[in-house]
Lab assay of single mutants.
Amino acid sequence: HNLTITQGKLFFHYNPKLCLSEIHKMEEVSGTKGRQERNDIALKTNGDQASCENELLKFSYIRTSFDKILLRWEPYWPPDFRDLLGFMLFYKEAPYQNVTEFDGQDACGSNSWTVVDIDPPLRSNDPKSQNHPGWLMRGLKPWTQYAIFVKTLVTFSDERRTYGAKSDIIYVQTDATNPSVPLDPISVSNSSSQIILKWKPPSDPNGNITHYLVFWERQAEDSELFELDYCLKGLKLPSRTWSPPFESEDSQKHNQSEYEDSAGECCSCPKTDSQILKELEESSFRKTFEDYLHNVVFVPRKTSSGTGAEDPRPSRKRRSLGDVGNVTVAVPTVAAFPNTSSTSVPTSPEEHRPFEKVVNKESLVISGLRHFTGYRIELQACNQDTPEERCSVAAYVSARTMPEAKADDIVGPVTHEIFENNVVHLMWQEPKEPNGLIVLYEVSYRRYGDEELHLCVSRKHFALERGCRLRGLSPGNYSVRIRATSLAGNGSWTEPTYFYVTDYLDVPSNIA
């Protein structure tokens, strides 16, 4: 807008934040220059609390790290170098490059900038070799853009010569660093050979998330399962459950009422301010606690030095998902009996873990797994792929695949051998790939016309006998059925096997 004052003059007093240069501009645009008398524009009460600059400061050096910015700028000295009290560095987070010096300023003089007072450097006698002032900004957020400017702080001049310097606002972004852990990993099994893994992005990506790394490792069953005799009275049979499938998407929606109208769909109840505040506090606490764990609990591995020492970490090797089922080394339970199943799973520490690289999504279907087997899954978020990966501390989750139908069934015939004193040795093959492992066998036998009897055969007993022995049988026709019990439950009964026990007292003698 054009402003013209045809008559009258300007009068400025007691404006401590208004620089004289701005008042002189007002004289020019209003056409009143030359009308004012000496005392109409006070030299001592206008701009006496402001830094009124008329020179431009330029930054000469900028260096960044993930949490620091090192700045240096060209030296500046007023005509009387004693008038320079120091520099004021202003900075704040700036997602967009549209910041002005006066953003967030209120009537009390406060604003949204963080201000650092910096002492002037030592003055050199040689004007050509003056030290460049600077400042190291610490405690910054990774991968965050900051708006920065600097200006001088000078003393009051009796001659009211307006001098000083100020830089333009520059924008500097800190470097990326390792992201925080992925949030809320959930693993479920939808079949006997697959596990579905879902997660949420890290709360602090500290860069642009480029991919996720998912490692999985087959877990050995508890050692007590191999040692305890679950045929003993009072000892509860062990059981394991597989990871249940995901709930429906509708039930997972946030901010939804727990109660549904019987007449149909209901609208979600909005969260109160107290609920939102509580969630923010919980989120802040979780982030602080995660940072504490990362800094205190997890110790970084030592990389190899120039002395030739090897990095103890196993090298990563990509495998196809079809090879995942046989990740671990199978060892027989008892070496003397080769027909026992290889369900003991000690994992070799030198073995390469299978892994998958996930790009542009937060889910993965891990296939080719062994049925009813526990897996430990390790999830890392990465925001750099080359020249070397920059990934987060791992988040861990466990899951067990679903049982395989008929995996616990005894394959092959049940054979028998009759000894003296009416002892019958029953023999059968253990299931080759049971659900988890076989903890015991149930032997059901009966003599024709009598009630059915049951015998429990422990895992250890089966390994020693290759089956079991029935003792003290009365003469007669017998039928026997056997079924295995694994961590997933009972298998199917075998087809009945028949044998006849004679009275050993009636056996004919070869003595003449």
Score class of each variant (00 low, 15 high):
residue 264 G to N: 15
residue 470 L to Q: 01
residue 417 E to H: 13
residue 259 Y to M: 09
residue 244 P to V: 14
residue 239 S to I: 14
residue 480 V to T: 06
residue 295 N to M: 05
residue 283 S to P: 02
residue 246 F to A: 11
residue 492 S to T: 07
residue 227 E to G: 10
residue 273 D to F: 08
residue 460 K to M: 12
residue 509 S to P: 10
residue 483 R to N: 12
residue 450 D to Q: 13
residue 499 F to D: 00
residue 475 P to L: 06
residue 416 H to V: 08
residue 363 S to G: 12
residue 465 E to D: 09
residue 317 K to W: 08
residue 453 L to A: 13
residue 499 F to R: 02
residue 260 E to G: 06
residue 471 R to Q: 12
residue 443 V to Q: 00
residue 341 S to W: 14
residue 288 T to I: 15
residue 252 Q to H: 10
residue 450 D to P: 07
residue 291 D to K: 02
residue 242 W to P: 15
residue 448 Y to H: 07
residue 506 D to N: 15
residue 457 V to E: 01
residue 447 R to I: 10
residue 483 R to P: 00
residue 384 Q to A: 08
residue 337 F to T: 11
residue 503 D to A: 09
residue 376 R to F: 15
residue 219 Q to F: 09
residue 264 G to M: 09
residue 225 L to Q: 05
residue 372 F to K: 01
residue 393 V to E: 10
residue 434 P to S: 07
residue 296 V to P: 02
residue 372 F to Q: 01
residue 457 V to Q: 06
residue 215 F to W: 00
residue 337 F to C: 10
residue 467 G to L: 06
residue 483 R to M: 11
residue 471 R to H: 10
residue 469 R to W: 06
residue 418 I to G: 07
residue 420 E to K: 14
residue 271 K to P: 08
residue 421 N to H: 05
residue 407 A to I: 03
residue 301 R to T: 07
residue 341 S to A: 04
residue 354 P to N: 13
residue 499 F to I: 15
residue 353 R to A: 10
residue 502 T to E: 10
residue 244 P to S: 15
residue 266 C to I: 07
residue 227 E to V: 13
residue 328 T to K: 08
residue 367 S to Y: 10
residue 320 S to A: 14
residue 366 I to K: 09
residue 400 R to P: 01
residue 220 A to P: 09
residue 389 E to L: 11
residue 260 E to Y: 12
residue 363 S to H: 08
residue 494 T to R: 01
residue 319 R to N: 14
residue 358 V to S: 07
residue 290 E to N: 02
residue 267 C to P: 07
residue 333 T to L: 12
residue 389 E to T: 10
residue 410 I to G: 02
residue 449 G to D: 10
residue 281 E to I: 08
residue 389 E to W: 10
residue 317 K to F: 15
residue 440 L to C: 06
residue 231 C to P: 06
residue 245 P to R: 05
residue 362 E to Y: 10
residue 470 L to S: 01
residue 279 E to P: 06
residue 495 E to W: 10
residue 225 L to S: 04
residue 371 H to R: 15
residue 284 S to A: 15
residue 436 G to W: 07
residue 270 P to K: 08
residue 267 C to H: 11
residue 318 R to Q: 15
residue 262 S to Y: 11
residue 465 E to T: 12
residue 390 R to N: 04
residue 453 L to S: 06
residue 339 N to T: 10
residue 384 Q to M: 09
residue 475 P to M: 07
residue 449 G to L: 11
residue 223 S to L: 09
residue 355 F to Q: 04
residue 484 A to T: 14
residue 385 D to M: 09
residue 416 H to C: 11
residue 236 K to C: 15
residue 272 T to E: 04
residue 308 G to Y: 15
residue 327 V to Y: 13
residue 441 Y to G: 03
residue 289 F to P: 02
residue 203 S to T: 11
residue 303 T to L: 05
residue 467 G to E: 03
residue 236 K to W: 05
residue 246 F to Q: 12
residue 315 S to N: 14
residue 412 G to H: 05
residue 484 A to L: 05
residue 221 E to R: 09
residue 389 E to Q: 10
residue 310 E to S: 11
residue 242 W to E: 15
residue 344 S to F: 05
residue 319 R to I: 15
residue 429 Q to L: 07
residue 401 T to D: 01
residue 349 P to C: 15
residue 255 N to I: 06
residue 248 S to W: 03
residue 404 E to S: 11
residue 389 E to F: 12
residue 390 R to H: 06
residue 438 I to V: 13
residue 259 Y to V: 11
residue 289 F to R: 01
residue 209 I to M: 15
residue 270 P to C: 03
residue 329 V to M: 12
residue 319 R to M: 09
residue 353 R to S: 14
residue 282 E to F: 11
residue 467 G to T: 03
residue 494 T to D: 00
residue 290 E to T: 03
residue 459 R to T: 10
residue 406 K to M: 10
residue 409 D to A: 05
residue 353 R to K: 10
residue 403 P to E: 00
residue 479 S to A: 15
residue 348 S to P: 12
